[in-house]
Design a protein around this nucleic acid. Structure first.
Length: 282
DNA sequence: GACCAGGACCATT
DNA sequence: AATGGTCATGGT
């Protein structure tokens, strides 16, 4: 498919359950065991145990998004343009809000490979089994209704450490319908953000991730250690800046799709820019 | 064997 | 409002 980089999209740390095997991306979308393969003019999707729900896949993959129009709003500075040239076709997914929320609760001060391991363990232990080929296995991501029944000890056995009480507490709130998670998408960005911040284990950074990756608020701009380093390196001559200072800069420098641009910076810094001058510092 | 990871929270200033 | 310590676990 034109203007779609499936590797960058599924491998850029916005989602944690996809793995590439023999040229195909294997993962779960809406309880469907899916394999994806990028073709010149389309993304080929197979579902084990049935026909894929194409509408659900299009929504998740955001294939209808006009990427060209979004990229045009990115700032015209050298580093940003290099990031675009390097990982053009990287798109933001539209993920399930609960899976996204729970996943990023588990993400704090963890490397992406470890986050993947924790979520794999959580799904295998508490998620429903899905149809899969012989010798393979697939599990749905466990919903709040299931996780709220867990003990903190059971969750800790998935190696999530001090994040366990946060996940458990938030699962209980969502599972008891004391919080309208789905309803956030019809709210203004700032209000949705304030509501997310009331949940245990959700601070500013994780809230922005959920707003950006699950609800399509493409202005939300999560700043983690990588993005902070990138901003300092690129725009502040490698000088450490306070988080508040970085946020002020982000507001004026990046456009309406600031969070989208953020994902290009993040991926370019971590992966795509290896071997180029990014690592050595402009 | 240090150092660090897509942070949040709480207790002090 | 703004720092500083603390929380598990494992990769690099």
């Amino acid at each position: 498919m034109r203007d779609y980089d499936l590797d960058a999209t599924l491998g850029s740390g916005q989602t944690f359950r996809w793995k590439k095997q023999q040229g195909k991306w294997c993962g779960i979308i809406g309880g469907q065991n899916i394999r994806l393969e990028l073709k010149p003019d389309a993304i080929l999707a197979e579902r084990f145990g049935g026909n894929p729900d194409e509408a659900a896949l299009r929504e998740y993959l955001q294939t209808g998004t006009d990427l060209e129009a979004i990229l045009k709003t990115f700032p015209d500075d050298p580093f940003m343009q290099k990031a675009i040239a390097s990982c053009r076709g990287l798109r933001l997914l539209r993920q399930d809000p609960w899976e996204c929320l729970a996943s990023f609760i588990l993400s704090s001060t963890k490397q992406i490979v470890q986050i993947e391991q924790i979520i794999k363990s959580l799904s295998e232990n508490f998620g429903g089994k899905l149809p899969s080929p012989k010798g393979d296995s697939a599990f749905a991501f466990p919903g709040p209704d299931r996780l709220m029944e867990c003990t903190e000890k059971e969750l800790r056995q998935c190696k999530m450490g001090f994040r366990a009480p946060y996940l458990l507490a938030t699962a209980k709130i969502i599972g008891a319908h004391e919080f309208d998670l789905e309803g956030l998408k019809s709210l203004p960005l700032e209000e949705a953000r304030l509501r997310l911040l009331t949940l245990p284990g959700i601070g500013p950074k994780i809230a922005d991730c959920v707003l950006l990756f699950a609800f399509g608020f493409s202005h939300a701009f999560p700043i983690d250690v990588w993005v902070a380093k990138a901003l300092e390196k690129i725009y502040f001559r490698r000088r450490p800046r306070k988080l508040s200072s970085l946020k002020t800069f982000v507001e004026k420098h990046f456009g309406p799709h600031a969070g989208y641009a953020q994902q290009y910076l993040f991926h370019y810094m971590r992966v795509a820019g290896r071997g180029e001058e990014v690592k050595k510092g402009l």
